[in-house]
């Protein structure tokens, strides 16, 4: 799941790959609420997973973990 998030952030949102790290928060990557929602919609489209408690201060690792948990419970 982390790999999917990282790929979307670089390919879809044009964020430099070297700042996309597990410890980075979405805010660190200068996403705003609109772009974070957009990212979540793309993840839902690709995976069928819906997560509602990822926010701008979530790290990529914690967001990936959250999706993985959603996957496990699905």
């Amino acid at each position: 799941m982390y790999e999917l998030l990282a790929t979307l952030l670089t390919d879809e949102f044009g964020i430099e790959a070297d700042v996309v790290t597990p410890d980075a928060t979405f805010r660190d990557l200068e996403l705003d609420s609109l772009s974070l929602t957009e990212l979540a919609v793309i993840v839902t489209e690709r995976t069928g997973l819906l997560v509602d408690d990822v926010d701008l201060d979530s790290t990529l690792a914690s967001a990936a973990e959250r999706y993985a948990t959603a996957s496990a419970s699905a």
């Binding site: 879809e12 949102f13 044009g14 964020i15 200068e30 609109l34 772009s35 957009e38």
Partner: peptide
């Protein structure tokens, strides 16, 4: 648009 404006802006 990606090249002229940057992917981050152009995509929305």
């Amino acid at each position: 648009g990606d090249a002229l404006l940057g992917r981050r802006l152009a995509r929305r």
